[in-house]
Design a binder for these strands. Structure first.
Length: 586
RNA sequence: GGUCCCGUAGCUCAACUGGAUAGAGCAGCUGACUUCUAAUCAGCAGGUUGCAGGUUCGAGUCCUGCCGGGAUCGCCA
């Protein structure tokens, strides 16, 4: 059981008993929380219901609190309850509540921390969505890890999740890509191509693409006219580039359920494509011909008023209306984006999360406007912006290879420091805060390195079992035996304190998922690791707190049950983050 | 000029979406290894949460206006 959730339910129940008028005021009831007090001396749980509801109940908070407290007089799990400050209700629970965390974690295993009921509705998480014109670089990495962890987190919390990658395969950059690849194809056939002309992609990653084209087509491409050639090689090159992207993502353990092609929105006709969407918006009266005002303060030199097809984005909270059709008659990128969001809505996603890079900050309003417009207000678009990552070496900005066409790729990053480090560090910050990634720090094996610190806690927990096997080999420490341990032995303040930290896992996870903030999981496992390290060291000062007690097998078993639960919770948390939990560190 | 993000200890960052005395790590100082890996831990010190107002029982968090840093700004994607 999750003590916080359980007691929240009890408080709600008693409130309705005391104040029947609340029973049809779900909104008011949803506002109070049961949470750990900041100051542990206030007790185990703190509830603000009396204060939150005082206005609705037209009564003063302390009076409401007193009534509630009386209701808990006979609750066997409440050791102490009182009213404090302006009307907080503070609970101190009996030790068995916290001890039961161990039993739960050991029994539920990998499912410990999952909410019992699944939230309603389907959620779409779109992340990476990098242009398929080259390998992924550092800038993509944070968004990739963030999106993946967020999806895992919500998946763990039983949300119905689809992980999606939007392939920008319709724009002019793909033509450039195809031409660049063609040049490499000529090179593969033995031509001297000299310098790569400006405007084409110079990267060496296209060399194997050129070779692949040469193998597939021989020299037949050379005799084609430009248009035919492009339409021939375009899909082939795209597929090769997407293979490259997928290989990069695989190195970080990131996968998607669906790769959605932007180009498919341009032709289709099967519902939710651009034309259909624009027609639909037109019927709704949200499209018109008009001119936009030049931006104030910084009018471009070549600004000219031009009438164009516009979408009434400003009706949905955007700053200005947005162009849908370019002067050459093709659709703008945003037009495709609107169609894409409509497509998602038609596929049943009322919750759409889009993970974007820092340079897309100005895109937030536009996308939520699109989301509202195409769904009649039903779909919610949550745009998560991942801020820049500063690469450092020894505290100095990392000097990257200056050779043209080179940048730090995701693959290089993973090869140098490992996927666990990349993932954890990227998740150990709020997504909207800039992040320093120091190569020297993250490869150290000290407490300064949070990845190591957490993994070490897990490895230590495992080593406790190795030691037990060595010191008390006759003791059965199988999961079955641990589940029979007498947990009431674990009543030392240091133990209760560790158990409380453990017991917060379920609500920490649930809150992180609801807020779309996976970094909280990283902070939680770090906190649990700290609590475990602290308990471990306490065993040095107070030998009776060591896991293995040679005089008392019952307590040894109980302690090991606790260690196993810690290990399990760390694993569950790390697994959400996609970080491994090694049994031993080298 | 508009919009968005950020501003919290000397440094890097938290603060469970409005809760009680704002917390961690690093750097600094003091301690703990014949002991389950000290790869760790305990303690001390460090703050007018950029500034000024407002909302209420209560604000780092919400609203308004400034200051500073970053990003972005009609048909690129």
């Amino acid at each position: 059981m999750d003590a916080f959730a359980v007691f929240r339910n009890r408080v709600e129940e008693k409130l309705i008993n005391l104040f029947p008028e609340l029973s049809d005021n779900k909104q008011a009831l949803s506002r109070f929380v049961v949470e750990p007090p900041r100051d542990a001396s206030h007790g185990d749980l703190s509830c603000n219901a009396a204060m939150v509801l005082s206005k609705v109940l037209k009564s003063n908070p302390r009076a409401i609190a007193e009534k509630l407290v009386a209701e808990f007089a006979n609750d066997e799990q409440v050791e102490k309850i009182d009213v404090a400050g302006p009307g907080f209700i503070n609970f101190t629970l009996t030790p068995d509540v916290w001890q039961s965390v161990i039993a739960d974690a050991n029994k539920q295993g990998a499912d410990y921390g999952r909410p019992e009921v699944a939230p309603v509705g389907k959620v779409n998480v779109e992340y990476v969505s990098a242009n398929p014109t080259g390998p992924l670089h550092v800038g993509h990495t944070r968004g990739a890890v963030f999106g993946d962890a967020l999806a895992s987190l919500m998946d763990f919390c039983r949300y119905d999740i689809t992980r999606e990658y939007y392939i920008n395969d319709a724009g002019g950059q793909i033509t450039v890509l195809a031409n660049s690849a063609y040049l490499r194809y000529c090179e593969a056939l033995g031509d001297d191509i000299g310098e790569i002309p400006a405007g084409l992609y110079p990267g060496k990653y296209l060399i194997p693409v050129g070779q692949a084209l040469a193998e597939k087509f021989g020299d037949s491409l050379k005799s084609m006219d430009e248009t035919e050639r492009e339409t021939t090689i375009r899909p082939v090159v795209l597929e090769l580039m997407m293979d490259l992207v997928r290989d990069d993502l695989k190195k970080l353990g990131i996968k998607h359920d669906l790769f959605f092609s932007e180009a498919s929105l341009h032709g289709g006709g099967n519902g939710g494509d651009i034309k259909e969407t624009l027609d639909w918006l037109g019927e709704e009266g949200l499209v018109y011909q008009g001119t936009l005002e030049a931006p104030k303060g910084k009018t471009p030199e070549d600004w000219e008023d031009r009438e164009q097809t516009l979408f009434k984005a400003s009706d949905f909270g955007d700053d200005t209306d947005r162009a849908l059709v370019k002067s050459d008659g093709t659709y703008t990128y945003f037009a495709a984006d609107i169609a894409y969001h409509r497509n998602k809505y038609l596929r049943g996603f009322n919750s759409q999360i889009v993970v974007l890079g820092a340079d897309h900050a100005g895109y937030i309003k536009r996308l939520s406007a699109a989301g509202k417009a195409v769904s009649g207000g039903e779909a919610e678009v949550d745009v998560k912006i991942c801020q820049l990552v500063n690469l450092l070496r020894n505290g100095e900005p990392a000097k990257m290879s200056k050779r043209s066409g080179n940048f730090v790729t995701m693959a290089q990053l993973v090869d140098e420091v490992g996927a666990d480090v990349v993932r954890f560090i990227m998740l150990f910050r709020r997504n909207e805060a800039q992040l320093d990634f120091d190569f020297d720090l993250v490869t150290q094996q000290t407490r300064e390195n949070p990845v190591f610190y957490v993994q070490y806690a897990h490895a230590r927990a495992c080593s406790a079992f190795r030691n037990a096997a060595r010191d008390v080999p006759e003791l059965d420490v199988s999961l079955e035996a641990l589940q029979k341990a007498d947990l009431s032995k674990l009543s030392h303040p240091a133990e209760i304190s560790l158990l409380k930290t453990m017991g917060q896992f379920p609500r920490a996870i649930e809150a992180a998922a609801a807020a779309h903030e996976p970094h909280r999981v990283a902070f939680y496992v770090h906190e649990l690791a700290a609590a475990f390290h602290a308990f471990w060291t306490k065993g040095k000062e107070e030998p009776q707190l060591r896991f293995v007690n040679h005089e008392d097998r019952t307590i040894t078993l109980a302690r090991l049950a606790m260690v196993n639960a810690v290990r399990q919770i760390l694993r569950n948390g790390l697994s959400i983050l996609g970080v491994s939990a090694p049994e031993e560190l080298s």
